[in-house]
Design a protein around this nucleic acid. Structure first.
Length: 574
RNA sequence: GCCACCGUAGCACAACGGUUGUGCACCGCUCUUGUAAAGCGGAGGUUGUGGGUUCAAAUCCCUCCGGUGGCUCCA
């Protein structure tokens, strides 16, 4: 009996209830599976095609059935009886073959389903549910199998919980980075450029550069150096690295007029490895730490693309450390410190995942079990020494090495995988990367992959939604929106603009012939951290009226005090 | 790539076989204002693309392009 989620029986029973409703409405339906999931439940159906418009009808039927207060009853059965009962249900018959223990059915009313339970006792307990969406899903999750129709739903014990869930979804929708990106004028797409190829507007590009500068300032302190690589390479590079074999379908390919064959780079490690390989190294010269914010390109399947979350041109703050085995721990710790500084700035709490290879699917990974064991143990040691809680992700490793993944919880309690530290003993082997050791014998280097923000596209999609567009002052594209009350105030306002600009404060002046209420509203919608109003009073007193994003207004502030306040905030990265 | 849905002005939406419309934004004029939307006027669309059905297509059917939610994938 597995109960991996809260309200397991409730969710599972609701999926049975939905299946029974669908059977009444669409008698020819073939049932696949209908498990509870963390967010609710779903059921996969074959033989029918549904659209979102069918959901209210199904929901109504579910309510009707639930009201009859049917009892959920378990029945144990022989294989022969089960086969008879499921003779019209090809998917269920297939499932039956895999069951080794006792075969149980759960029944409510006329509806009976192959199922190991548990369930609620009576259908009356299923009150606060809602069907959410229709989706396609492959039978048994394999894309070679037929596509089934999946219906997702949620169910809660109380109406309060259901309403809270729906409110959260609405809030998430308001914060959707695709919507805010347009409203705040941060990025755009063009059908002429193509799917999954975002372009950053002046404001969005500014945000990217500020983030990048921040990451660089943290890295610089740890001894990193910037490098630059071309965005194309011969495919030979990836044949050597092992990427070609594994990812060739996802590479953009280019042939030259002379008949040579190039690919757009889908990652940067092999290039950085070639920079390292340019000369002989002494053990004294390690680690070499190369970093670079650069674009990479992956030919993702069209259906996987989504806003900035998944794109084909990926701007990443990538870094690779080439070090000795005995330096691995200090280097991982240095990266970990950077990650902590970076993410805490935005108020994220990070959860740690130790991502290892899956010994049962070793063909997915490079190298030998011995090498993996060493790498994984080394990572585990670092995690243990830092005394942080962590979860283990078996099979979540990169194909060349184990990782520490960092998972951030956002302001809506959603979890996102963000930064990652990857240990790599395999690419140094494949590229034969060595240094001269103390005994003057060639020794193998260890490579550590370390992105901090990761893909800026993805990072910003997560950050925009986390902050609801309210970037902290240091990151806000417009830090101060300056408003004039009447045309008489423009001259002084322009003086203030000059002063702010001299202090590198990003300011925009609004002198439109609009009401002050209107200009404040527009400034608020732009999410400017400060809205400064200049009317006759301010001109006379040579002072400012400062309004914060939260709506608090302070009159009579001296310009230099305001500048100090903004700069203090920027320097503290608050 | 697969399943479902969607594409009408810069944005949000309406019209659902019979003359494309509303609000905001934009341009012009008036107003000169005190902390979340001033008033009037104007311009802007061969309804994503190409084809088909029809007396008639934004509306129905097909192709392609683009998007959304899932599935598969994710170095």
């Amino acid at each position: 009996m597995k109960e991996e989620f809260p309200d397991y029986a409730l969710k599972h029973s609701c999926s049975h209830l939905m299946a029974s409703a669908i059977k009444e409405l669409f008698p020819g339906v073939k049932f696949a599976i209908g498990p509870p999931i963390e967010d609710g439940f779903y059921y996969d159906f074959g033989g029918i095609s549904l659209s979102e418009e069918d959901l209210p009808k199904i929901e109504a039927k579910m309510k009707e059935i639930a009201k009859k207060n049917l009892k959920f009853e378990m029945a144990e059965m022989s294989v022969a009886d089960a086969k008879k009962l499921l003779k019209d249900q090809p998917f269920k018959l297939e499932l039956l073959k895999d069951i080794s223990g006792k075969i149980t059915f759960y029944k409510h009313g006329d509806f009976s389903d192959l199922c190991e339970g548990p369930h609620v006792r009576f259908s009356k307990e299923l009150k606060h549910f809602k069907l959410m969406k229709v989706a396609g899903a492959y039978w048994r999750g394999n894309e070679k199998n037929p596509m089934l129709t999946r219906v997702y739903g949620v169910v809660f014990k109380t109406k309060v919980e259901l309403d809270a869930y729906l409110t959260l979804l609405e809030e998430a929708k308001k914060r959707d980075h695709k919507k805010l990106g347009k409203e705040l004028d941060l990025f755009t797409f063009s059908p002429l450029v193509g799917s999954g190829l975002p372009m950053w507007t002046p404001k969005g590009a500014l945000v990217c550069h500020l983030l990048d500068d921040f990451v660089w300032s943290l890295r610089k302190a740890k001894g990193y150096e910037k490098v630059i690589i071309p965005h194309l390479t011969k495919k030979a590079l990836y044949e050597t690295s092992g990427h070609w074999k594994k990812f060739q379908d996802e590479l953009f390919k280019i042939s030259t007029r002379e008949g040579h064959f190039f690919v757009m780079k889908p990652m940067n490690c092999p290039h950085h490895a070639q920079i390292f390989a340019r000369k002989q190294w002494s053990y004294r010269e390690l680690p070499q730490r190369y970093c670079e914010t650069t674009m990479m390109y992956r030919d993702e399947q069209s259906g996987e693309l989504s806003g900035l979350s998944r794109v084909r041109s990926i701007n990443i703050d990538d870094a690779h450390v080439f070090c000795r085995k005995d330096q691995v721990e200090q280097e991982i710790n240095a990266i970990w410190d950077i990650i902590n500084s970076f993410y805490s700035t935005f108020g994220y709490e990070l959860q740690v995942r130790f991502s290892t290879h899956d010994p049962n699917q070793f063909e997915k990974f490079l190298g030998t079990p011995e090498v993996w064991a060493v790498a994984e143990e080394q990572i585990l040691n670092v995690i243990k020494k830092r005394k942080v809680g962590f979860i283990e992700g078996v099979g979540e490793a990169a194909f060349y090495g184990p990782k520490i993944d960092f998972i951030a919880k956002d302001s809506l309690n959603r979890e996102w995988q963000v930064a990652t530290i990857q240990l790599d003993f395999n690419q140094p082997d494949r590229f034969d990367l060595t240094y001269a050791g103390e005994e003057n014998r060639p020794e193998r280097v260890v490579m550590i992959h370390a992105a901090i923000a990761g893909s800026f596209e993805r990072f910003l999609s997560v950050l925009i939604e986390h902050l609801a567009g309210n970037f902290p002052t240091w990151l806000a594209p417009v830090q101060v929106k300056l408003l004039t009350v009447t045309d008489r105030n423009v001259a002084f306002a322009e003086q203030v603009v000059d002063e702010l600009k001299k202090s590198d404060i990003r300011v925009e002046l609004d002198t439109r012939s609009e009401t002050i209420g209107r200009k404040v509203r527009d400034g608020q919608l732009e999410r400017a951290p400060y809205i400064v109003t200049i009317g006759d009073k301010e001109v006379t007193n040579k002072s400012l009226a400062i309004r914060t994003r939260k709506g608090k207004v302070t009159f009579g502030v001296a310009t230099k005090d305001f500048i100090k306040q903004v700069l203090d905030e920027v320097n503290a990265k608050q």
